[in-house]
Design a binder for these strands. Sequence first.
DNA 1: GATGAATGAGGTTTCATTCAT
DNA 2: CATGAATGAAACCTCATTCAT
Lengths: 228, 228, 228, 228
Amino acid sequence: MASDERAQEILAVARDIFVARGFHSTAVTEIAGRLGVAEGTVFKYFPTKRELLNRVIEQWYGELFGDYTKDLSVIRGARARFRYLVWRHLTTIREWPGMCRLIFSDVRSQPGYSRSPVHRMNLAYTGLLLDVVREGIAAGEFRDHLPVELLRDVIYGGIEHHAWGFLYGHATLDAERYADQITDLVCGGIERREAGVASSPETDLSALADRLERVAASLRSPDKGPRA
Amino acid sequence: MASDERAQEILAVARDIFVARGFHSTAVTEIAGRLGVAEGTVFKYFPTKRELLNRVIEQWYGELFGDYTKDLSVIRGARARFRYLVWRHLTTIREWPGMCRLIFSDVRSQPGYSRSPVHRMNLAYTGLLLDVVREGIAAGEFRDHLPVELLRDVIYGGIEHHAWGFLYGHATLDAERYADQITDLVCGGIERREAGVASSPETDLSALADRLERVAASLRSPDKGPRA
Amino acid sequence: MASDERAQEILAVARDIFVARGFHSTAVTEIAGRLGVAEGTVFKYFPTKRELLNRVIEQWYGELFGDYTKDLSVIRGARARFRYLVWRHLTTIREWPGMCRLIFSDVRSQPGYSRSPVHRMNLAYTGLLLDVVREGIAAGEFRDHLPVELLRDVIYGGIEHHAWGFLYGHATLDAERYADQITDLVCGGIERREAGVASSPETDLSALADRLERVAASLRSPDKGPRA
Amino acid sequence: MASDERAQEILAVARDIFVARGFHSTAVTEIAGRLGVAEGTVFKYFPTKRELLNRVIEQWYGELFGDYTKDLSVIRGARARFRYLVWRHLTTIREWPGMCRLIFSDVRSQPGYSRSPVHRMNLAYTGLLLDVVREGIAAGEFRDHLPVELLRDVIYGGIEHHAWGFLYGHATLDAERYADQITDLVCGGIERREAGVASSPETDLSALADRLERVAASLRSPDKGPRA
DNA sequence: GATGAATGAGGTTTCATTCAT
DNA sequence: CATGAATGAAACCTCATTCAT
């Protein structure tokens, strides 16, 4: 069998078992056994169980990228793109909880992680958000001088923290709802906006017109709130 | 020796070694050896190495609380109190990296964590922020209808994410700087504030819109007063 | 079972199997199995298979010393004591070929051997010869200014070289014969004694002394001829 | 590529790596890899890793011979030739420590060594000394009836023993000094030369007086030998 | 209350060698 | 002549936990 195919086979099986059982509870014997292959064969292709795990994660990250960039290319507006990334991250966690547990518990805390290819891919992954934010700043949608790296930490760390109950407990994960909430929270901030957000009369007036329109609409369909 | 004292001794030594070596690299033999005690003795007081770890963490959380509440009692203003909690969390990580690694890597991902006392203490710990935010809302400093639990996730998850390079790599941790940045970021949001502050007549148009909205609302639910 | 007894049991069984199979062909499983004990038990007492081997050798060396010093205490004369050590070393090899193979092949070439207790015991063992030679020098039986350390190397290295065919081939080992030959060779040297060569009148005095000595000897034991 | 050349290439690379890493720490993969050749190829030319080692050693022995016989052909006198061989052996060890470690640790203790070509070459190598000694005997420089094989063991075994600290420890190897010492020691023997060594008449006479005194003493107490 | 000897189930890893292509 | 994928056996070592004393 061609070397590449065999390596792919091993990666595929390893992914399944790692995801199902976790890293420490997976014996290399099991991976080999499922393939009908000798144990040594696995080590011929991957020098270490740990390295096999890293390669599994790298491959998975690679698959994610394709979708992300494709989707992003059709979304307009910094806030909409921002929300997409948040939502997508949430749904990724919901669809790949095992993989995420591997990353959170077994990959990220290994010594030397900060200089590993997996870390680089993770930076590339979360870097999509950096780009979106920078575009938003350039487009005037977001404020200048934002600490973008910190913003990234807040978003991905926040999502991870929120997902913890889903990943390690019995909670569910409502991607849509939290994508909105996080977007609103981070975009709008938590401080009360004093009155007249409006700086220039013109934009104020247009905003006012928007609101009046909505108020009017609500008067017309009294069963829904004005923001629905 | 009094049962309590012995248990305290074990906890103290276990904390030191866990912090220094990590959970998996610490052998119970070592804890017992450092105390000049037999291995079995440790298991007399703590049924499991894991349980010993949990108790170590619980005790440590307990110590934190005292300081926090004392300090908070003298700080006025929601934003200041908010910043204090952020800053304090950052400095705690900087002072207790070993303990934080234990919590992040070994405690939180154990099965059943979400129903464990440690988790309850963590909720109590992060709950301080919830209180501060709720107070801020009540005082009118923060916006209404904030998703406070999510806000907590964003803050603590964000800080954790940011601290990762410090805890598992070689980065440093600038608590003051990031306390400010996080506070600014989350309080102010990332979207451009169009306006000002503005008490000028023009912006009063927006106040007018507010009033119109409240009027419309009262029209829809006539049983409540217009300010409800 | 007392810790010491168990350690002794393990040492005894390990010695047997190491001697019979050699170091590399001995599995710790086998040692444990022969004792009816778990494999881990062996490693509780000896941290490493290698360390177990070292301890086996050390114990064996210790046993040798007793006999040696006892025997030496009753032998008079440097040459006789010298020959005893040579002969004893040869018989030790003949009686403990397995042990000697372990030392020659597995112990001595391990990294750090030169600073190990086994090496120290070996130095003490071969040091007996150094003492004998030094005594012989002091007593006037041996020449002054001999390079004693080198002499030791020559004796023990020579014996080992000679024994190689016995230890790793099918040769036999004639301890008595080779003890004599080595003693003669090293004591007398290989160069022709000039003594006689000398035909000059002066040196003939020494030949005269020889003759006188033989005459004296014949006077004491009249049944043998003067040349005996 | 011609079969012979390929075999030579393999031998050359194998020698380098065996010498650098030792036999057990060298993987056949590494040898093949360094040549840019498949593992199987190595086994096409040499049935076994062990056999490859043997051939490496044989080739090396072959190279040695040339030099030795060339050098010997110009040295006159048994003792000088003897010293040359001792000195040359010491310098060979100093220049080829890796090769010597292979021979001492990995080659010589393999089963069947005593009937192997390597052993035959080793006998031929050490046989040079036998020849020199036999010539010395024939020339009257060395004593008759020397146990020449044993002498060989003593020389080569002695040198090896002495070199052990250099090969497996951190000692240095002073070839000149030890060549002299070994030659002196073995040629002259260790026993005090009573007799005609005598260079100056005076010391001869005093030595003679000593001996006469002892003879006289023995005549007076007939139960003890003159030397007792 | 304290001991500490014993457990015992794996886990990861290595490599010379073969053989079908 | 060359390849190189596959083997597969075993080996050492670890340590939380138990339980008889």
